[in-house]
Design a protein around this nucleic acid. Structure first.
Lengths: 189, 189
DNA sequence: CTAAAAACTTACTTATTAGTAAGTAACTCT
DNA sequence: AGAGTTACTTACTAATAAGTAAGTTTTTAG
């Protein structure tokens, strides 16, 4: 068993994710990925038959990643506000690297995607919204969080604030994102 | 003086706007516009030297459009809530045509744009946010609107809810947008 | 050590992209 | 009516796009 210092397939995923978050899905090519990793065009095609396959793989990664977060939160002693903050932190991280979340990025290009990908994105969004919704519902039940709307609506409000917040931040600056972030936390108290 | 039934330049702008809002800025080409209008590629280049120039023209249109709205609101007898509703209505309209707002669309492709365009988008966003902020501030002062945050922050929250709301709606359905819309209105009471 | 499988590169193809130079038709102004 | 201007079309170019077939190197497993 040898130790592999670099795994090309994972590197492609890493760069692909970076490009989607930084430039947008329809603004980069396999050639760009190849150039970045100093491999050939065809090598990218070897690992991912086409761009859609790469995107699909990234979506699967994203889903797994959130499922992992769900498990961690379930087994944690964090209060509801702390759990919500874990979601918020992900967006704050994006903001720092002038990137937007994959969902927000893909949302702009949504009508250019094949049905198979659209369907999976839909599931991903349902999952994330469901997680936030459940966390909010529990927090409210325990008296840790306070809000007027239904948990679903509150989840929608929070996630749209965050998704568009990072989009806005790279145009008008991080101060606006920070204002949003602080307001979100305060609103739940 | 002849009556011109179609003005190619305006048709190009119309289709360009449609494509940006439906497919995204980096997902359509001049050839697509030409095909749609049954003119030649070069005719599009004649009116707009390059894609950036077309985008810039659309941004200018957008700015003018909002300035017009600003004038209309200033001279109107609408209460603050009614004015805010005028902003919301624009997004509701987009939602109905499976489209997203130009700003949201461009935000995804922001890092692929030349500095000149970036700067103008920045100004556009400042203008829109400023308008909403001012409306909110006046409404609060008159006791017509109620919210905790600063007018700027509240404007950020509303506009990000709307921008990402329409993005979300074409993936997860219009019901989610409607929930957001109603919550926004209710929150200000 | 060796065969097969995995991970590539080389060398293409076909389609699309943005863009332009040169020509033509139509309108408009005097 | 004729000259200039406007609004195009025709016919390209050069660059980039996705994708693939065939060959080569590297790794792994027996």
């Amino acid at each position: 068993m040898s130790i592999r210092t670099t795994d090309t397939k994972e590197e492609i995923l890493r760069i692909g994710k970076q490009f989607i978050q930084y430039y947008g899905y329809n603004a980069f090519s396999y050639a760009d990925i190849a150039r970045e990793l100093k491999i050939k065009n065809a090598a990218v095609h070897y690992h991912f038959r086409g761009k859609e396959d790469l995107l699909m793989a990234l979506i699967e990664n994203y889903i797994q990643n959130y499922q992992l977060l769900a498990q961690q939160l379930e087994g944690s002693k964090l209060k509801a506000a702390g759990k919500i903050n874990k979601f918020i932190e992900r967006y704050t991280g994006l903001c720092d690297s002038d990137s937007i979340c994959i969902i927000g990025s893909i949302a702009s290009d949504y009508n250019t995607l094949p049905e198979s990908v659209k369907a999976r994105i839909s599931e991903l969004i349902e999952m994330v919204l469901g997680m936030v919704e459940q966390t909010l519902a529990e927090g409210k039940k325990k008296g840790e969080l306070h809000f007027e709307e239904s948990p679903r609506t509150r989840a929608l409000l929070i996630m749209t604030n965050l998704a568009a917040g990072v989009q806005l931040a790279r145009i008008s600056g991080k101060a606006d994102y920070e204002a949003i972030r602080k307001a979100l936390i305060k609103q739940l108290k």
